[in-house]
Amino acid sequence: MKQLHPRIQFVWVLRSAIFAAVLGAGLFAGHLVFDLPVWLAPAAAGLVVVLGLPFARLRYLKWGYEMREDALYLERGVLTEVRTVIPYVRIQHVDSRRNPIERAVGLASTVVYTAGSRGSDVRIPGLTDAGATDLRERLKELAILAGEEDAV
């Protein structure tokens, strides 16, 4: 089972910090307009940040993926554990992408698409630039190798 790049924890913490800032700003606006208690904004934001730290750690520990013989296997989730099996033969296409936060810390994601209606796109975050490209290429090859079946 492969783990993500440890730096992904930083991305997640940063994300919860951004969320905390937005939440705090919203609650502060609520204080100005609706008379909400003034301590609510820093308290809520602080709580999000405090909870965000161990959550990012747990999330990192729980994340794993594996390229099995005929399928891509992923395991993730803190509160709800999710295990996904995507047979290579069902892969429609594979993307690698980077959002601004990921770019800032030099990470990238690979997104795998199937024709399914529910888990039609699965994202593997926390890869290095080279790793994401490499994973994309390998999955693409495996998908081609798995067959020329019409996917639908």
């Binding site: 989730g77 509160l79 709800t80 295990r83 996904t84 099996v85 069902r90 024709a115 399914g116 888990g119």
Partner: peptide, 14 residues
């Protein structure tokens, strides 16, 4: 016709 298999376990299910 299977596209993918997804196994989910919520904290309550566990």
């Amino acid at each position: 016709r299977i596209q993918s298999v997804i196994d989910t376990r919520t904290i309550f299910q566990r």
